[in-house]
Design a protein around this nucleic acid. Structure first.
Length: 205
DNA sequence: AGAATGATCCTCT
DNA sequence: GAGGATCATTCTC
């Protein structure tokens, strides 16, 4: 239980969701377990905000599944989907208002061997480049739903000292059928660890 | 390079 | 009973 001494404070999450989404890019997500410490730089996120956002899990109102989304900022909202994958969100805004930032991709920084073992692949750019991939690489599952992200074993830290302000691009959210008119996906321009698909269209020539 | 598919199970209707 | 904020693999152009 080393520690989350440098963890981002609750105030970081207690802002508008779009603001948190932009500012969390470049921050470092850290996970500790008996297997060791794993960390990565956040390179892709999406915002989901309010009951009037049709793509937000709160669109149909409060249920047992999404209650953490309505909780105080700085909690982890973890859900299980497609019979296979977990997704990790950071709860934002005031207590009682349902909103969160989905973490979609990391650039691995620490614990690459552990990630590779959990994932069954070795290429660094494939270890955590997708919402399901990164939860597997970090060992995140439903047990961490509701976890306080200002503490171990899962927390966020500010961007490493000396890192430049990243260039952020935005676009439509991925994998949803409604709410596509809200361009609430944010990612680091040109980063190899952004999830495959829409964002990484290569220019063929 | 893009489309289709199977895996697999929690959550809500 | 259906569908889902996905992924890896296998197909078809």
């Amino acid at each position: 239980m080393a520690g989350a001494r440098r963890a981002l404070p609750r105030a970081f999450y207690h802002r508008s969701t779009l603001e948190v989404a932009r500012h969390v890019l470049g921050c470092v997500l850290v996970s500790e377990s008996t297997e060791g410490r794993v960390a990565g730089r956040i390179v892709e996120v999406e915002a989901y905000r309010g009951e009037d956002d049709p793509a937000c899990h709160a669109a149909a109102g409060r249920t047992a599944r999404n209650q953490v989304l309505y909780g105080p900022p700085g909690l982890a909202y973890v859900y299980f989907t497609y019979g296979m994958h977990h997704c990790l969100n950071l709860v934002t805004e005031r207590d009682g208002f349902p909103a969160a930032v989905l973490i979609r991709a990391l650039e691995p920084l620490e614990g690459l061997e552990i990630m590779a073992r959990r994932r069954g692949v070795r290429a660094p750019e494939r270890l955590a480049s997708g919402p399901g991939r990164l939860t597997q690489a970090l060992g995140v599952d439903l047990r961490l739903n509701g976890h306080d992200l200002t503490r171990a074993p899962l927390w966020l830290e500010p961007p490493p000292a000396g890192s430049r302000r990243p260039r952020v691009e935005r676009g439509p959210r991925v994998g949803i059928r409604v709410g596509r008119e809200r361009p609430w996906r944010f990612f680091l321009a040109g980063n190899a660890c952004v999830s495959p698909g829409r964002a990484r269209r290569r220019v063929s020539s």
